[in-house]
Amino acid sequence: MLDQSFYTKTDEILSKYPAQERSLIPIIHEVQEAYNYVPLELLPYIAKHIGITETKAYSVASFYERFSFEPKGKYIIRVCDGTACHVRNSLPVLERLREELGLSSQKKTTDDMLFTVETVSCLGACSLAPALMVNDHVHPAMTPDKATEMLKTLREEDAKS
C-alpha cells in the first residue's frame, strides 16, 4: 500500500489536466518526475479519474521506454548510444559506469538508490560525442576516466546536500 501522500500528490497533478484519455501520458510524466518512477499502484487511480480502464493505463505506460515502474536513483545517468556517440566510443563509458557502480543492463539502479544508469537513443548533443545526461544536465565528450571523475563529483554533491 502506498502512503496517502502519494494520492494527495497525484490529486494535485490530476487537477491540472482534463479528465480525458489524452491526459494520461502527461500525467504519468509528472508522476514520474515527482517520484523518479511510476508507482504501479497509482495507475488504476489515475485511470479511474480520467475514465479509462486500468488495463489501458498499464498498456500505454508499459509501451514507453521512458516510464519506469521501478524506483530510480537520485541521479539518473543516461548514456547516449546514438550513432555519433556510438562511433566515437560511447560503450566504454557505459561499461566503466556500470563497472564502478556494480550495475548491468538488467540491474540499472544502485542499492543505495543514488545512481541509475541507462542508455538513450540520442541526446541531440552529437557534436560533443560521446555525451551523457545526468538528470537534465548534458555532459559532453566523455571518456571512461571522466565518467569515474563525474561519479566522484556527484557523490560529493550528494554528501553535501
Partner: peptide, 15 residues
C-alpha cells in the same frame, strides 16, 4: 491488452 513493446510485447491483464 497489449503491454510492453517490440519482441517484449505481450497480451496480458494489467500488471
Amino acid at each position: 491488452d497489449f503491454a510492453h513493446r517490440g519482441t517484449e510485447a505481450m497480451v496480458i491483464p494489467a500488471f
